[in-house]
Design a protein around this nucleic acid. Structure first.
Lengths: 98, 98
DNA sequence: CAGATATGTAAGCAGTGACTTACGCATTTG
DNA sequence: CAAATGCGTAAGTCACTGCTTACATATCTG
């Protein structure tokens, strides 16, 4: 789930949150080249965050609903790590201020 | 505040949460070389997360209490970014499931 | 069928960041 | 004062990652 650490990929997810879009439509909203976006899409699909639906010569991407949980868990894990440090700090500070 | 994104640096903060330590003491707890730790310490000081106190030939590092807030803010900002995406997603899912 | 369209893939470049070794500088110690 | 100790700095390596420019592939369209 490290896939969602990249800003552009986060944006892709945000865009797709509004609904299914074709690769071209998605890429149109970015300044980077279309292949670059395509690569990001590939990473996200690989990570299970997105799904692809082929229709004719187009490919429609959408967020995999089940990924919601995973993303949430990942977020929590990230938070948890820091909270470990923060908690220790706060505690130390409180004690030290005596 | 990007400084605290690196795992080893996070560990440094955790270690220092227990109290002030000399550079050598800190480095002893890591597998990487002493200079590498020194560099991490430098970054953290530069970022305002740590303070240094020179005493003789030793340098004692400790967490800067005021950094607590900044770290917290940074964490919140990170969360916020993702929540933007997550909120949109959840909303879209809820609507879509009709 | 030939050309256009929609998209992925390959290959390579460039920036970044963490790490290592080597070295320099101050401070303590015998 | 010379050696030892505690650290930081310099310089260079390496891996990773995102980007770009070709190029390949599949599908429509006239």
């Amino acid at each position: 789930m490290e896939a969602i650490g990249e800003p552009n990929r986060r944006r892709v997810v945000e865009v797709l949150a509004a609904g299914e879009r074709s690769a071209g439509e998605i890429a149109a909203g970015f300044d980077i080249s279309r292949p670059a976006v395509s690569q990001h899409l590939g990473v996200l699909v690989e990570a299970g965050v997105l799904r692809v639906r082929r229709q004719g010569r187009q490919r429609f991407y959408s967020v995999d609903a089940s990924a919601l949980d995973e993303v949430g868990d990942w977020l929590e894990a990230q938070r948890g790590r820091w909270n470990t440090a923060l908690d220790a700090l706060e505690q130390a500070m409180d004690e030290g201020e005596s």
